[in-house]
Amino acid sequence: MMIYVLSVVLAFLFLLLVLELVRRQKLKEQYSLLWILFSAVLFIVSFNVSFIEWIAARLGVKYAPAILFLFGLLFCFAFILHLTIVVTRLTAQVLRLTQELTILKEREALHGQND
């Protein structure tokens, strides 16, 4: 039973941390929503031990808490994938900004010569 208690405590602390980060504007609301959802699900699931055991039985998992880890891990993968998509977009945007700036700089230098 220890793992369920630990899981409830961790989920609660995690939720507090996310809310505090949003309050301090260290985390955008749009990204925090996913984390809040995640900790809420973890919180509820940790309370309903029978629910976890029911799913475990359905999936043929002998060690019920492994279900918690499975979903936690899957969520992490999904979130990291999302982040690399964001990084790809940001990289493209930064490159285009750099290129535009470089061309503008050259034109400005040309204007300076004509004055």
Binding site: Q99, L101, T102, I103
Partner: peptide, 25 residues
């Protein structure tokens, strides 16, 4: 020669595209 100086190293693809962007403009 005219020189377009990028503020940091963007790599060959980004550099080459800067040239094509200039040609287009």
């Amino acid at each position: 020669a005219k020189v377009l100086t990028l503020p940091y190293n963007v790599g060959i693809g980004g550099g080459m595209q800067t040239g094509y962007l200039y040609a287009q403009r």
